[in-house]
Design a protein around this nucleic acid. Structure first.
Lengths: 238, 238
DNA sequence: GTCTATATAATGATAGAC
DNA sequence: GTCTATCATTATATAGAC
């Protein structure tokens, strides 16, 4: 992970200032001057080092991707090659004061849907799929009816605390995601992943029956539009 | 819901153009001139009608809040007073071509964390909590160890398709969220909510044991920082 | 490498005619 | 209500001194 030490090169200081502001306010809302101010340099120097605001963003993207892909994971006892997003996030959460900028920036990368964010999400889904397949093979997980789609759902649920950090923190009476709040989230999440929420399978059975034959895996034209029960809610428990 | 008919007042046309662009590009990245172009009016007229770009955003916020709170739900057979976010989203999903702007704008409202977005999320959690409580009372749902936190998790999971629309669509081979993709998501999501993902409760038991006594419901100072097992992952299955 | 000064373009907003 | 023309400000980026 990125070193929190203060003796950075000017270039790195500018990059970190940009990462903070981009993460906190977004790319468009952040001016080169604001970045320069935060890094205690002139606006011209920012451009001098990175060429343009857009290239500065690319440099920030690269930092986050490096952290997640583990290429520079020095502090974490050099855990080596393929650290995943979950492991990185766990490390960040343990020291949110230091890593909230990375956290916020990553959230924006995923939301904004740029190329780097897409690649991260794709990798996350792939890794999740592999992990579920292993869990099933080891008998630790139930066999999903659709492995790939289940991986998409589980991966999406996994990044949820990242994207809704501030809402979750606020609703739970904290300031963003704190370690305490993450702990309080752990058991309820595991309860759902262990016992489910529904007491019986009426909802599941109804959905399975209603969608029987309706689903075309090859994504053909949905000429049967509207045939399904409109009460089949994609986010059922709300 | 907002009328898709073409005979809108100029003011409404400007507002809808703004909603589209704000949703697609974000507030800061959208210029008043771009909005004017899309609405086929002059930039001055945009300001004339709304006073400022910021007030125009507030008008867009109000439109979405109205749609979700059901104040103007005419098309949905005037289902009346308290339509919730889930019902609105279901209606939107059935006609994504028309309502993707609302969808995208709502996602940004929640992510940006402005006051309107906060109010929506808070209302969503409250409604989810009430719904789970009812489900438990009716015997249709398991009793969570922590109702409020479970409501936070379930509500967050519920908005996930909204926030990750494009990623989910892309990974599943579509263009954003289509009706077909929503259908394919339904059963895997219900499987998790019905049977869970884990085959046994080892993970849950371990987390419960590890966090025993560590959690302070009153959110006091966490002087026991670092005492918990760092492998207690908040997003476990990744 | 770092600065000041400045070029150039775009932005939100206004003035005033119609 | 709607426009054209324009203002004042701010934006990114450049030029050139040190």
């Amino acid at each position: 992970m990125r070193s929190p030490s203060p003796d950075l090169t000017t270039r790195a200081r500018i990059r970190d200032a940009a990462l903070e502001l981009f993460g906190a306010q977004g790319f468009s809302a952040t001016t080169v001057r604001a970045i320069a101010d935060r890094a205690d340099v002139s606006a011209a120097l920012v451009i001098h080092h990175f060429g343009s605001k857009e290239e500065l963003r690319a440099a920030c993207d690269a930092v986050i991707v490096d952290e997640i892909m583990g290429r520079k994971s020095a502090t974490l006892a050099d855990m080596g090659s393929q650290a995943d997003l979950s492991a990185t996030m766990r490390g960040w959460l343990a020291d949110m004061d230091t890593f909230r900028p990375s956290f916020d920036y990553l959230a924006r990368m995923i939301i904004d849907g740029g190329e780097a964010g897409q690649a991260l999400f794709d990798a996350l889904v792939d890794r999740t799929e592999a992990m579920i397949a292993e869990g099933v093979a080891a008998g630790a997980m139930n066999t999903p009816s659709d492995l790939r789609t289940t991986a998409v759902v589980v991966a999406s649920y996994g990044v949820m605390p990242l994207l809704l950090e501030r809402h979750i923190g606020r609703v739970m009476g904290g300031d963003g995601l704190t370690l305490d709040i993450v702990r309080r989230l752990t058991v309820p999440m595991l309860e759902i992943y262990t016992h489910g929420l529904y007491a019986d399978d009426t909802a599941l059975a109804a959905a399975t029956a209603a969608l029987e034959g309706v689903l075309d895996t090859s994504r053909g034209p949905h000429s049967d539009k509207g045939a399904g029960d409109p009460n089949q809610d994609p986010d059922p428990p709300e």
